[in-house]
Write a protein that binds this DNA or RNA. Structure first.
Lengths: 113, 113
DNA sequence: CCAGATGTACGATGACCGTCGTACAATCAA
DNA sequence: TTGATTGTACGACGGTCATCGTACATCTGG
């Protein structure tokens, strides 16, 4: 139930994510260029799955959904369904493989910002 | 009027560049999120000054001017006038001080394409 | 002085983006 | 079943963006 082990983290994947090799740098940079989305990604930086509602943001639910979709379609995050909740997590491994160091550098820059 | 640049490289600086500490991460990422601008920055990555016309791009002069202004106002590049030419160069030092590793990582990612 | 080269300024246009409200679907607990 | 929770879908609205054409300003070389 509260299991977040690796083996259970892809039970109900959400479609619309690009394959690792199809992740585009421009799309990733654009996704990260919005302050709200950057904040979302920063919150996901701990490697833990977060739901839409578990991240305090100055926007409505609709807008939150929109931003998470942008991040997903850019290949920045992974989403999976669990009950009524949608769990979001960073695609750290894929991003590191495709654009080594990028995510970490941006997150560090955001923290310094 | 004194400046910190070598005398030959700042004879006619162009206004509208943010101070180092005023460079915003969102603005930088947005500036780099356009494929044309990313290509421009990649060409400037050799550390050499380039003019608008010396970079082959699939856009008109007007659009080129527009993109260089976006990069300048985001704090990514420095521009100086020399005759009828406007010389563009990366603000590598400022960017490295403000967001360590960011520019290099993005350029490497762009090269990996 | 004049013609060419370099680049800007300005306006227009079509597309995209961020935001929201409302309505709706799915799940879980009582 | 009923109600609460969680999030999506859809449409709308205003703002921003990328692109271009045209006109203009500035410098340079004959």
């Amino acid at each position: 139930m509260l299991d977040t082990h690796p083996a259970s983290e892809a039970r109900t994947p959400i479609a619309g994510e690009p394959e690792r090799d199809a992740i585009e740098l421009s799309a990733v940079l654009h996704a990260l260029s919005d302050p709200i989305r950057l904040q979302m990604v920063a919150e996901l930086g701990d490697g833990v799955e977060h739901t839409c509602g578990s991240i305090k943001l100055p926007v409505t639910k609709s807008t939150c959904t929109h931003h998470f979709r942008v991040l997903r379609e850019a290949g920045v995050i992974h989403q999976r369904q669990e009950g009524t909740s949608r769990l979001n997590s960073l695609r750290s491994v894929d991003l590191e493989a495709r654009f080594p160091g990028l995510l970490g550098t941006v997150l560090r820059a955001a923290a310094a910002g």
